[in-house]
Nucleic acid binder design. Structure first.
Length: 301
RNA sequence: GCGUCGAUGGUAGAGUGGUCAAAUACGACACGCUGUAAACGUGUUGCCUUCGGGCUUCGGGGGUUCGAAUCCCUCUCGACGCA
């Protein structure tokens, strides 16, 4: 720990729904204030998933360093806990270089993991146990958890199998689920949210989709397939890759694919907003009011 | 023209005399989330309500019945078959 007092170093966070122009803004700001960008996107971490996830291109980066892109193998599952570790490290590095970290992305959970200092229990996924537990009903799982850890059982969503399984996994490994903890990070976060009217956003999503398809989103996935990523995995990699994979396999028509792609993008955008809405620290701007954003940031720095 | 089958809530699609404001899925809307988060889960989804209920719905009209989305007649539309 050197140099900065708690609350001293500033980190800019740029978040918002998909297709609102976060990446562009981040680059602009970075150039202005001497920042470096740390992605907060749960899909762009994967190598080879470029067009389909809207990953920024080399050219668009305009020489600004971007981190936490292409850090994971698409065949393997990447998780928040891993992200959190990598992000913390990168932030520190950037600050040590006297640059300003700009956290930019649309994955609310990843952003919170960093900005709220979430601490994840160090229990890696136990594949065998999970497979076992997956067979059981939510009710059964809930009862198992109750026996292992009453406290966690009280707060958990008793119908959510994914959560229940993880809780049991932790409880089995540690004897109990550690109380949810957050350690306030030693930074000050300036959270900028980009918001666009519903109609505009829908249009933007449409336009972007068309562009992605034209740029060869399907080819990109086809290449992943050839590189040995199983079709099954595409479903987990995200909606764009899911529906394109279904199309490539001849399971849905072109028309159906386009409909699903748009719908799932839009639904995602709404879910993102549900997440962001709760964070009262976010200051919302229209992506076109760059000047206002700039002034806001400069006042906070 | 004759015959058969069909017409159900935003969509698909169950229901074939009461337990039906009508399964289920999708969509829509809202919400939750501490190692899958583009994931996963929850709630609401005819109208009104003092949350007890009340009211109007299953192509249109008419009937049978204590009671019809369900049975009968008829009309409209659609699919198929025969001419």
């Amino acid at each position: 720990m050197r140099g900065f007092e708690p609350g001293g170093a500033r980190i800019i966070v740029i978040l918002g729904q998909t297709a609102t122009g976060k990446s562009d803004l981040a680059v602009k700001i970075a150039k202005k204030i001497g920042g470096e960008i740390i992605s907060a996107d749960s899909r762009q971490v994967y190598k080879g998933l470029d067009i389909g996830t809207g990953k920024i291109t080399e050219k668009e980066m305009q020489t600004i360093p971007h981190y936490l892109l292409d850090v994971a193998n698409p065949k393997k599952q990447f998780t928040v806990a891993q992200y959190k570790i990598l992000a913390d490290k990168k932030i520190k590095e950037v600050i040590d270089r006297d640059k300003i970290p700009i956290l930019c992305g649309g994955t609310g959970f990843y952003i919170d993991a960093v900005t709220k200092g979430m601490i994840f229990p160090k229990v890696p996924p136990n594949k065998k146990l999970r497979k076992d537990l997956e067979q059981k009903t939510a009710e059964t799982l809930f009862n198992i958890l109750k026996k292992l850890d009453k406290d966690r059982a009280k707060s958990i969503d008793s119908k959510n199998k994914v959560r229940l399984i993880r809780a049991i996994e932790i409880a089995k490994a540690l004897g109990e689920v550690p109380k949810i903890t957050e350690a306030t990070p030693p930074y000050k976060f300036i959270k900028i949210g980009l918001k666009v009217p519903e109609k505009t956003l829908k249009r933007k999503i449409r336009i972007r989709l068309r562009k992605r398809i034209r740029s060869g989103m399907a080819i990109e996935l086809y290449n992943l397939r050839k590189a040995g990523v199983p079709w099954k995995r595409f479903i987990e990699l995200g909606f764009d890759q899911k529906y394109i994979a279904l199309f490539l396999q001849g399971k849905i028509s072109n028309k159906e694919m386009l409909e699903k792609l748009f719908k799932s993008n839009w639904q995602y955008a709404k879910r993102q907003m549900t997440w962001f809405k709760r964070d009262k620290e976010i200051k919302w701007f229209s992506p076109v009011s760059y000047k206002k954003i700039k002034i806001y940031i400069e006042n906070k720095l």
